[in-house]
Design a binder for these strands. Structure first.
Lengths: 346, 346
DNA sequence: TTGTAAGCGTTATCAT
DNA sequence: ATGATAACGCTTACAA
């Protein structure tokens, strides 16, 4: 069915090694012969059999993307799709294949990991996990499989690529401070996720830098769902915040709803800033001021770092890469910086 | 580094063939010996090298998911993520690996296809394309690679899995008719996509069934973006519809905006029904009545059909599978069926 | 510069 | 029931 080196060799009247050399463009082959071989390759549409090649070279040109989180929940948020778009872009550019491993069931996860990592299919792995204690990490370290984490990780040896959550949160809160707010509440994310911790840290940093005292009654912890945004807002209201920084847009939408229900106007009575800049942020009324992360770049950067490591001479790729990409404040109408809502939707 | 059959064989004091038999549980091996081998396998954590195995068996246990569309655009809609979640679920259950191929650049796409299909890595492919003239399809047919399309396709030979777009649209429009509407507009999707054609067809079927005359001025064609929802609504308004069926939620949000801007109330002045049930549908005010597709099931079903074909004795898997999954009407507040908006967000 | 041959880790065929 | 042995399609010393 599929052509083999041998058949191309016969057609071109050379040996199979010569064809191999041409295909992998080794220099040592007469241009005349090379042309003849290339001609046959083009005519026949020959492509080397990946498995056979990978068996001898020990490289598959496949990188794995492992997403251990409860997929169904997180996939309604465009984070993973955009991340994948970025990874894809880089993979395509470098002719790598991408193997996607999603795990929604914690049950049997350990076994699934083995299935994926032990198969020998993967040259390297990108891990998109939000848990510090992700069991995959020690596994990968032990097995010596090159990997890059999206998000950060305390272990000195790991490579990671992350968005500047601290800076993003600080930027948001400083924006509120600049607008004159002092009683600034926060609806933080789950504190077992490093990204959430960072955003809370950024909040503290901004307050400290401007000598605004931190008040515990102005700090609530949600779980990133819209409904937790509602309850956290209700929890914060007695402390009379004039502004709230919310650690993601979904919760910010909940906050918006809760504030409206409490008879408060946004941004007049309470200013609001979200995080992520998902589509819904622009769609609600008033449109949310929020912090945008370079999610797609995060993905392509992770792939770039990984492929860089894979292609490095010794395979180690030098000291661990720790990359932090900047975030961006998207000013809309929920923070009061822009006064009137112009016509929207083009 | 990684263990081989030979090493396990040595440790267990048997030949490499015996170990192979145990690993692939062929019946013909004494239980005593089998136990001994399994013991070693467990202790060492041995796993067969996938590439080597696939070289001889000609099966990789990898299925490809190919998404040829402009990724960046379509990924903000949760369709692909949910589809992938479904495919993943089935893949995990059947111990298949999933290779994801996204193409955003039309340039060099032909070459990328070859890269993916010609690699020999894939046992089969799931194609999620919305174009009838997708060049991949004839390619796959010619190469004899088993594949399943998500969406439907006129070619008799192809397997496909699709949501019942005709039925979903009909259901939506009949709902409006039942509520007393006669002047029902439609904002259809791009008519080069089969799914869009189907929804328009469902609209016609519903009107015909209830002897409501079709009026060309009540039909507009958008491109699935929110802003096209705005312009199409403006285009429809002179025909004075009392209800509009919109072929996706994003355009419905645009319609909502355009109606509000025209000083019309939803649902009192104009009733609105969307399609897809993306998160934004529930978030806008009033929440959109819409048609929900079983996207995740679509994905898992596609994978199931494909894997069924791959595991069928001859490899052909009988006559082509054509699967249509039912859709569901989600009644909220934009159609006027439910009168008052209760407290939301739990 | 080119060809020959060994070997990558499996499975599968054939003896035993 | 088990063990040699020959593929599978490729890369890569090593020879020529």
């Amino acid at each position: 069915m599929a052509l083999t080196l041998e058949q191309i060799a016969k057609q071109a009247g050379v040996s199979r090694s010569t064809v191999s050399r041409v295909v992998n463009d080794h220099c040592s082959v007469r241009t005349e012969v090379r042309e003849r071989v290339l001609q046959v390759v083009r005519e026949t549409g020959y492509q080397p059999h990946a498995a056979a090649r990978s068996l001898v070279t020990r490289r598959s040109q496949i990188i794995g993307v492992v997403i251990p989180e409860a997929v169904t929940t997180l996939f309604i948020d465009p984070f993973f799709p955009l991340l994948l778009a970025g990874v894809t872009e880089t993979c395509n550019a470098h002719r790598y294949h991408l193997m996607l491993s999603l795990f929604d069931r914690p049950a049997g996860q350990e076994e699934m990991y083995q299935h994926v990592l032990g198969s020998g299919y993967l040259d390297g792995v990108i891990v998109a996990s939000f848990r510090l204690d992700e069991p995959l990490i020690p596994d990968l370290l032990e097995k010596g499989i090159p990997f890059v984490i999206v998000g950060h990780h305390p272990d000195k040896r790991v490579n990671y690529v992350d968005a500047d959550n601290v800076g993003g949160a600080r930027m948001a809160v400083e924006h509120l401070i600049r607008l004159g707010h002092r009683r600034i509440g926060i609806i933080a994310g789950p504190q077992n996720m490093p990204g959430s911790q960072d955003r809370l840290l950024g909040y503290h940093q901004a307050l400290d830098a401007h000598r605004v005292p931190v008040e515990q009654a102005l700090v609530a912890e949600g779980d990133f769902t819209e409904s937790s945004g509602v309850t956290c807002t209700q929890q914060l209201l007695p402390a009379a915040p004039t502004a709230i920084f919310v650690a993601n847009d979904a919760m910010a939408v909940g906050a918006l709803r809760a504030l409206r229900r409490a008879g408060l106007q946004v941004p007049q009575d309470v200013a609001l800033i979200g995080y992520d800049d998902v589509p819904i942020a622009a769609a609600v009324e008033p449109a949310l001021t929020t912090v945008r992360q370079p999610i797609t770049r995060l993905g392509s950067m992770a792939a770039e770092v990984l492929i860089g490591i894979l292609n490095s001479p010794n395979g180690a790729g030098g000291p661990p890469h720790k990359v932090i990409l900047p975030t961006e404040l998207v000013v809309r109408y929920s923070c009061g910086a822009l006064r009137e809502s112009p016509s929207r939707g083009q």
